[in-house]
Amino acid sequence: MQKFFTILGGMGTEATESYIHLLNERTPTHKDQDYLNYILVNHATVPDRTDYIVDPDHHQSPLVPLAEDVRQQSQLGPQFFALPCNTAHYFYDQLQALTDIPILHMPNLAIAAIAKKFPQAKRVGLIATEGTLKDRIYEVAIQAAGYQFVMPTPTIAKETMTLIYDDVKAQNWVDADLYHHILQQMVEDLHCDVVILGCTEISVAEERAGHANFPVIDAQGELVDESIRLALAARKQ
Protein backbone atom coordinates (compact mmCIF):
# COMPACT_ATOMS: atom_id res chain seq x y z
CA MET A 1 0.00 0.00 0.00
CA GLN A 2 1.28 3.42 -0.97
CA LYS A 3 0.56 6.84 0.54
CA PHE A 4 -0.96 5.75 3.82
CA PHE A 5 -0.79 6.83 7.44
CA THR A 6 -0.82 4.89 10.69
CA ILE A 7 -3.24 5.40 13.56
CA LEU A 8 -1.82 4.51 16.97
CA GLY A 9 -5.12 3.63 18.61
CA GLY A 10 -6.80 1.50 21.23
CA MET A 11 -6.55 4.09 24.04
CA GLY A 12 -9.45 3.46 24.36
CA THR A 13 -11.00 1.44 21.59
CA GLU A 14 -14.36 3.27 21.57
CA ALA A 15 -12.51 6.57 21.27
CA THR A 16 -10.47 5.20 18.37
CA GLU A 17 -13.67 3.99 16.73
CA SER A 18 -15.03 7.53 17.05
CA TYR A 19 -11.90 8.91 15.36
CA ILE A 20 -12.27 6.40 12.50
CA HIS A 21 -15.97 7.19 12.11
CA LEU A 22 -15.32 10.94 11.90
CA LEU A 23 -12.37 10.35 9.56
CA ASN A 24 -14.50 8.37 7.12
CA GLU A 25 -17.51 10.66 7.51
CA ARG A 26 -15.56 13.86 6.82
CA THR A 27 -13.49 12.55 3.93
CA PRO A 28 -15.00 13.78 0.65
CA THR A 29 -16.01 10.62 -1.20
CA HIS A 30 -18.08 9.42 -4.13
CA LYS A 31 -16.73 5.89 -4.43
CA ASP A 32 -14.70 3.31 -2.48
CA GLN A 33 -11.40 4.56 -3.87
CA ASP A 34 -11.93 8.07 -2.49
CA TYR A 35 -11.49 6.93 1.11
CA LEU A 36 -8.10 7.25 2.75
CA ASN A 37 -5.41 4.60 3.03
CA TYR A 38 -4.46 3.93 6.65
CA ILE A 39 -3.34 1.24 9.05
CA LEU A 40 -5.09 1.06 12.41
CA VAL A 41 -3.02 -0.27 15.31
CA ASN A 42 -5.70 -0.85 17.94
CA HIS A 43 -3.33 -1.61 20.82
CA ALA A 44 -5.98 -2.03 23.51
CA THR A 45 -3.61 -3.54 26.09
CA VAL A 46 -1.44 -0.40 26.38
CA PRO A 47 -1.40 0.34 30.15
CA ASP A 48 -3.60 3.17 31.35
CA ARG A 49 -1.90 6.50 30.73
CA THR A 50 -3.45 8.37 33.65
CA ASP A 51 -2.60 5.61 36.13
CA TYR A 52 1.07 5.86 35.18
CA ILE A 53 1.26 9.66 35.13
CA VAL A 54 -0.42 9.96 38.51
CA ASP A 55 1.43 7.09 40.18
CA PRO A 56 4.40 5.89 38.10
CA ASP A 57 5.90 3.86 40.94
CA HIS A 58 2.97 1.45 41.01
CA HIS A 59 1.86 1.26 37.38
CA GLN A 60 3.41 -0.02 34.17
CA SER A 61 4.63 2.57 31.70
CA PRO A 62 2.64 2.89 28.45
CA LEU A 63 5.79 4.13 26.74
CA VAL A 64 7.22 0.65 26.20
CA PRO A 65 4.40 -0.74 24.00
CA LEU A 66 3.85 2.61 22.30
CA ALA A 67 7.53 2.80 21.39
CA GLU A 68 7.33 -0.73 19.98
CA ASP A 69 4.37 0.29 17.82
CA VAL A 70 6.20 3.34 16.49
CA ARG A 71 9.30 1.32 15.64
CA GLN A 72 7.32 -1.45 13.93
CA GLN A 73 5.11 0.86 11.92
CA SER A 74 7.98 3.11 10.91
CA GLN A 75 9.45 0.20 8.99
CA LEU A 76 6.36 0.22 6.76
CA GLY A 77 6.87 3.87 5.83
CA PRO A 78 3.65 5.70 6.68
CA GLN A 79 3.53 9.36 5.77
CA PHE A 80 2.58 10.33 9.32
CA PHE A 81 1.21 8.97 12.58
CA ALA A 82 -2.07 9.96 14.23
CA LEU A 83 -2.25 9.43 17.99
CA PRO A 84 -5.90 9.76 19.06
CA CYS A 85 -5.23 9.81 22.80
CA ASN A 86 -4.60 13.14 24.49
CA THR A 87 -3.06 11.69 27.64
CA ALA A 88 -0.57 9.65 25.59
CA HIS A 89 0.95 12.93 24.39
CA TYR A 90 2.77 12.93 27.72
CA PHE A 91 5.21 10.67 25.83
CA TYR A 92 5.13 12.67 22.58
CA ASP A 93 8.74 13.86 22.57
CA GLN A 94 10.07 10.40 23.41
CA LEU A 95 7.98 8.78 20.69
CA GLN A 96 8.88 11.35 18.05
CA ALA A 97 12.56 10.87 18.86
CA LEU A 98 12.22 7.24 17.72
CA THR A 99 11.24 8.06 14.14
CA ASP A 100 11.72 10.58 11.35
CA ILE A 101 8.05 10.16 10.43
CA PRO A 102 5.99 13.02 11.89
CA ILE A 103 3.56 12.29 14.68
CA LEU A 104 0.66 14.73 14.65
CA HIS A 105 0.36 16.62 17.95
CA MET A 106 -3.32 16.67 18.87
CA PRO A 107 -3.12 19.23 21.73
CA ASN A 108 -1.24 21.71 19.54
CA LEU A 109 -3.79 21.27 16.76
CA ALA A 110 -6.62 21.95 19.20
CA ILE A 111 -5.01 25.10 20.57
CA ALA A 112 -4.25 26.40 17.07
CA ALA A 113 -7.94 26.02 16.21
CA ILE A 114 -9.01 28.51 18.89
CA ALA A 115 -7.87 31.55 16.93
CA LYS A 116 -9.72 30.32 13.82
CA LYS A 117 -13.00 29.32 15.45
CA PHE A 118 -13.17 31.61 18.51
CA PRO A 119 -10.99 34.63 17.65
CA GLN A 120 -12.30 36.69 20.58
CA ALA A 121 -11.55 34.01 23.18
CA LYS A 122 -9.37 34.93 26.14
CA ARG A 123 -10.24 32.38 28.83
CA VAL A 124 -9.66 28.81 27.67
CA GLY A 125 -10.85 25.90 29.77
CA LEU A 126 -9.90 22.25 29.58
CA ILE A 127 -11.80 19.10 30.49
CA ALA A 128 -9.63 16.00 30.40
CA THR A 129 -8.31 13.05 32.36
CA GLU A 130 -6.54 13.53 35.67
CA GLY A 131 -3.35 12.54 33.86
CA THR A 132 -3.69 15.24 31.20
CA LEU A 133 -4.45 17.87 33.83
CA LYS A 134 -1.44 16.75 35.85
CA ASP A 135 1.06 16.66 32.98
CA ARG A 136 0.17 20.28 32.02
CA ILE A 137 0.67 19.69 28.28
CA TYR A 138 -2.39 21.75 27.47
CA GLU A 139 -1.93 24.26 30.27
CA VAL A 140 1.58 25.29 29.22
CA ALA A 141 0.73 25.47 25.52
CA ILE A 142 -2.49 27.43 26.10
CA GLN A 143 -0.62 30.01 28.15
CA ALA A 144 2.20 30.14 25.61
CA ALA A 145 -0.40 30.95 22.95
CA GLY A 146 -1.44 34.00 24.95
CA TYR A 147 -4.63 32.73 26.54
CA GLN A 148 -5.65 32.54 30.18
CA PHE A 149 -5.85 28.89 31.17
CA VAL A 150 -8.86 27.84 33.25
CA MET A 151 -8.44 24.67 35.29
CA PRO A 152 -11.62 22.74 36.10
CA THR A 153 -12.63 22.70 39.76
CA PRO A 154 -12.06 19.45 41.68
CA THR A 155 -15.79 18.74 41.36
CA ILE A 156 -15.78 19.22 37.60
CA ALA A 157 -12.60 17.16 37.27
CA LYS A 158 -14.21 14.32 39.24
CA GLU A 159 -17.37 14.45 37.13
CA THR A 160 -15.23 14.39 34.00
CA MET A 161 -13.40 11.27 35.17
CA THR A 162 -16.79 9.65 35.81
CA LEU A 163 -17.86 10.47 32.27
CA ILE A 164 -14.61 9.14 30.82
CA TYR A 165 -13.98 6.02 32.89
CA ASP A 166 -17.28 4.91 34.41
CA ASP A 167 -19.44 5.71 31.40
CA VAL A 168 -17.56 5.61 28.09
CA LYS A 169 -14.66 3.30 28.92
CA ALA A 170 -16.53 0.91 31.21
CA GLN A 171 -19.96 0.83 29.58
CA ASN A 172 -19.63 2.39 26.11
CA TRP A 173 -22.36 4.78 27.23
CA VAL A 174 -22.62 8.55 27.27
CA ASP A 175 -24.47 10.39 30.01
CA ALA A 176 -25.52 13.41 27.93
CA ASP A 177 -26.86 15.29 30.94
CA LEU A 178 -23.56 14.90 32.78
CA TYR A 179 -21.56 15.99 29.74
CA HIS A 180 -23.69 19.09 29.26
CA HIS A 181 -23.58 19.85 32.99
CA ILE A 182 -19.77 19.78 32.89
CA LEU A 183 -19.72 22.20 29.95
CA GLN A 184 -22.29 24.44 31.64
CA GLN A 185 -20.14 24.74 34.74
CA MET A 186 -17.02 25.52 32.73
CA VAL A 187 -18.76 28.25 30.71
CA GLU A 188 -21.23 29.74 33.19
CA ASP A 189 -19.45 29.26 36.52
CA LEU A 190 -15.80 29.54 35.44
CA HIS A 191 -16.50 32.00 32.61
CA CYS A 192 -14.61 30.14 29.90
CA ASP A 193 -14.85 31.62 26.41
CA VAL A 194 -14.14 28.20 24.96
CA VAL A 195 -13.62 24.71 26.40
CA ILE A 196 -11.18 22.24 24.89
CA LEU A 197 -12.35 18.63 24.92
CA GLY A 198 -8.99 17.17 25.89
CA CYS A 199 -9.83 13.48 26.05
CA THR A 200 -10.98 11.28 23.20
CA GLU A 201 -13.64 9.68 25.41
CA ILE A 202 -15.09 13.17 25.82
CA SER A 203 -14.96 13.37 22.03
CA VAL A 204 -17.15 10.25 22.03
CA ALA A 205 -19.61 12.16 24.23
CA GLU A 206 -19.44 15.09 21.81
CA GLU A 207 -20.11 12.85 18.81
CA ARG A 208 -23.12 11.18 20.42
CA ALA A 209 -24.62 13.96 22.52
CA GLY A 210 -23.44 17.23 20.97
CA HIS A 211 -22.28 20.27 22.92
CA ALA A 212 -25.67 21.97 23.37
CA ASN A 213 -24.40 25.24 21.88
CA PHE A 214 -21.58 25.60 24.40
CA PRO A 215 -18.34 26.84 22.78
CA VAL A 216 -15.99 23.87 22.44
CA ILE A 217 -12.91 22.79 20.53
CA ASP A 218 -12.88 19.02 20.04
CA ALA A 219 -9.23 17.97 19.98
CA GLN A 220 -10.04 14.70 18.26
CA GLY A 221 -12.04 16.51 15.59
CA GLU A 222 -9.04 18.74 14.90
CA LEU A 223 -6.84 15.66 14.59
CA VAL A 224 -9.31 14.14 12.14
CA ASP A 225 -9.33 17.27 9.99
CA GLU A 226 -5.54 17.49 9.90
CA SER A 227 -5.27 13.77 9.07
CA ILE A 228 -7.59 14.25 6.11
CA ARG A 229 -5.79 17.39 4.93
CA LEU A 230 -2.38 15.72 4.95
CA ALA A 231 -3.60 12.46 3.43
CA LEU A 232 -5.39 14.19 0.56
CA ALA A 233 -2.42 16.47 -0.08
CA ALA A 234 -0.13 13.44 -0.26
CA ARG A 235 -2.30 11.87 -2.93
CA LYS A 236 -1.62 14.80 -5.21
CA GLN A 237 2.15 14.44 -4.95
Rank of each mutant, 00 (worst) to 15 (best):
F5T: 04
I7H: 04
G10A: 02
G10D: 00
G10F: 00
T13E: 02
T13H: 05
A15I: 09
T16G: 09
T16H: 07
E17W: 00
H21G: 06
H21K: 14
L22Q: 11
R26Q: 14
H30E: 15
D32A: 11
D34N: 09
D34H: 13
D34L: 05
Y35F: 15
Y35H: 15
I39A: 08
I39G: 00
L40T: 04
L40S: 04
V41W: 12
V41S: 12
A44K: 14
T45E: 15
P47W: 03
R49Q: 07
T50F: 05
D57Y: 07
D57G: 02
H58M: 02
P62I: 06
P65N: 04
V70K: 03
V70H: 04
R71D: 10
Q72M: 09
S74I: 01
S74G: 14
Q75F: 04
G77A: 13
G77R: 12
F80G: 07
A82C: 07
A82P: 01
L83I: 01
L83H: 00
A88M: 03
H89K: 08
H89C: 07
Q94H: 04
L95I: 04
Q96V: 01
A97V: 03
T99Y: 02
I101Q: 01
I101R: 02
L109V: 06
A115T: 15
K117C: 07
K117E: 15
A121D: 04
G125M: 05
K134H: 11
R136N: 13
I142A: 12
A145C: 07
G146V: 05
G146D: 12
V150C: 09
M151I: 00
M151C: 11
I156D: 13
I156K: 05
E159Q: 15
M161I: 10
T162Q: 13
Y165L: 08
Y165I: 10
D166G: 00
V168Y: 13
K169P: 03
N172H: 15
N172G: 07
V174K: 04
D175M: 10
D175A: 08
D177I: 10
H181N: 15
Q185N: 14
C192V: 10
D193L: 08
V194I: 08
V195A: 11
I196S: 02
G198R: 10
T200W: 14
E207P: 00
A209I: 04
A209Q: 10
H211V: 12
F214D: 07
F214R: 11
F214W: 14
V216E: 06
I217Y: 10
I217A: 12
L223P: 09
L223S: 07
E226K: 10
E226I: 06
I228C: 09
L230H: 10
L232M: 11
R235C: 03
K236E: 15
Q237T: 12
